[in-house]
Protein backbone atom coordinates (compact mmCIF):
# COMPACT_ATOMS: atom_id res chain seq x y z
CA UNK A 1 0.00 0.00 0.00
CA UNK A 2 1.38 3.48 -0.84
CA UNK A 3 2.20 5.78 2.03
CA UNK A 4 1.53 9.53 2.02
CA UNK A 5 3.85 11.71 4.09
CA UNK A 6 2.61 15.06 5.39
CA UNK A 7 4.35 17.93 7.12
CA UNK A 8 3.57 21.30 8.68
CA UNK A 9 -0.10 22.17 9.20
CA UNK A 10 -1.21 19.22 7.06
CA UNK A 11 0.36 16.82 9.53
CA UNK A 12 -1.42 18.62 12.35
CA UNK A 13 -4.76 18.33 10.60
CA UNK A 14 -4.23 14.59 10.10
CA UNK A 15 -4.07 13.63 13.73
CA UNK A 16 -0.53 14.97 14.08
CA UNK A 17 0.73 11.97 12.16
CA UNK A 18 3.12 12.29 9.21
CA UNK A 19 2.67 8.91 7.51
CA UNK A 20 -0.64 7.60 6.22
CA UNK A 21 -1.03 4.32 4.35
CA UNK A 22 -3.84 4.77 1.81
CA UNK A 23 -5.22 2.69 -1.03
CA UNK A 24 -5.18 4.24 -4.50
CA UNK A 25 -3.62 3.81 -7.91
CA UNK A 26 -2.96 7.46 -8.79
CA UNK A 27 -1.80 10.47 -6.83
CA UNK A 28 -5.19 12.13 -6.94
CA UNK A 29 -6.99 8.92 -5.92
CA UNK A 30 -4.60 8.59 -3.03
CA UNK A 31 -5.24 12.16 -1.91
CA UNK A 32 -9.00 11.68 -2.16
CA UNK A 33 -8.68 8.60 0.01
CA UNK A 34 -6.54 10.54 2.44
CA UNK A 35 -9.25 13.23 2.74
CA UNK A 36 -11.83 10.57 3.50
CA UNK A 37 -9.64 9.00 6.14
CA UNK A 38 -8.70 12.38 7.61
CA UNK A 39 -11.67 14.76 7.12
CA UNK A 40 -9.75 17.64 8.71
CA UNK A 41 -7.71 17.81 5.51
CA UNK A 42 -10.76 18.48 3.32
CA UNK A 43 -10.06 21.48 1.13
CA UNK A 44 -6.43 21.84 2.16
CA UNK A 45 -4.68 19.75 -0.52
CA UNK A 46 -7.44 19.29 -3.11
CA UNK A 47 -9.83 22.10 -4.03
CA UNK A 48 -13.54 21.70 -4.73
CA UNK A 49 -12.79 20.61 -8.29
CA UNK A 50 -10.72 17.75 -6.98
CA UNK A 51 -7.52 19.38 -8.24
CA UNK A 52 -4.29 19.56 -6.29
CA UNK A 53 -3.91 23.17 -5.15
CA UNK A 54 -1.56 25.19 -7.33
CA UNK A 55 1.17 25.71 -4.76
CA UNK A 56 1.19 22.18 -3.39
CA UNK A 57 3.79 19.84 -4.83
CA UNK A 58 3.60 16.08 -4.77
CA UNK A 59 6.66 13.87 -5.03
CA UNK A 60 6.46 10.14 -5.73
CA UNK A 61 9.55 8.31 -4.50
CA UNK A 62 11.42 11.61 -4.60
CA UNK A 63 10.38 12.66 -8.11
CA UNK A 64 7.87 15.38 -8.88
CA UNK A 65 4.51 13.80 -9.68
CA UNK A 66 1.20 14.95 -11.11
CA UNK A 67 -2.38 14.13 -10.30
CA UNK A 68 -2.44 11.16 -12.62
CA UNK A 69 0.96 9.76 -11.69
CA UNK A 70 0.55 6.05 -10.99
CA UNK A 71 1.32 4.79 -7.53
CA UNK A 72 1.52 1.30 -6.13
CA UNK A 73 2.42 -0.76 -3.12
CA UNK A 74 5.40 0.56 -1.20
CA UNK A 75 5.53 3.92 -2.99
CA UNK A 76 6.32 6.99 -0.90
CA UNK A 77 4.24 10.08 -1.72
CA UNK A 78 5.34 13.35 -0.15
CA UNK A 79 2.96 16.33 -0.07
CA UNK A 80 4.98 19.51 0.18
CA UNK A 81 4.01 23.21 0.02
CA UNK A 82 5.87 24.96 -2.80
CA UNK A 83 8.71 27.35 -2.09
CA UNK A 84 6.88 30.47 -3.16
CA UNK A 85 5.61 33.74 -1.75
CA UNK A 86 6.64 37.33 -1.39
Amino acid sequence: MPCVYLRGPLKGLAGDRADHEITGDTVVALLRGLEQAQPGLAGWILDERGRVRRHINVFVNGERGGEETAVGGGDRVDVVPAISGG
Binding site: D47, E48, R49
Partner: peptide, 11 residues
Protein backbone atom coordinates in the same frame (compact mmCIF):
# COMPACT_ATOMS: atom_id res chain seq x y z
CA UNK B 1 -16.89 27.73 3.30
CA UNK B 2 -16.40 26.07 -0.06
CA UNK B 3 -18.16 25.60 -3.35
CA UNK B 4 -19.96 22.40 -4.33
CA UNK B 5 -17.57 19.49 -4.81
CA UNK B 6 -17.01 18.16 -8.28
CA UNK B 7 -17.78 21.36 -10.17
CA UNK B 8 -15.44 23.32 -12.37
CA UNK B 9 -15.00 26.26 -9.98
CA UNK B 10 -13.07 26.70 -6.77
CA UNK B 11 -13.43 29.37 -4.12
Amino acid sequence: VSLPDGGDTAL
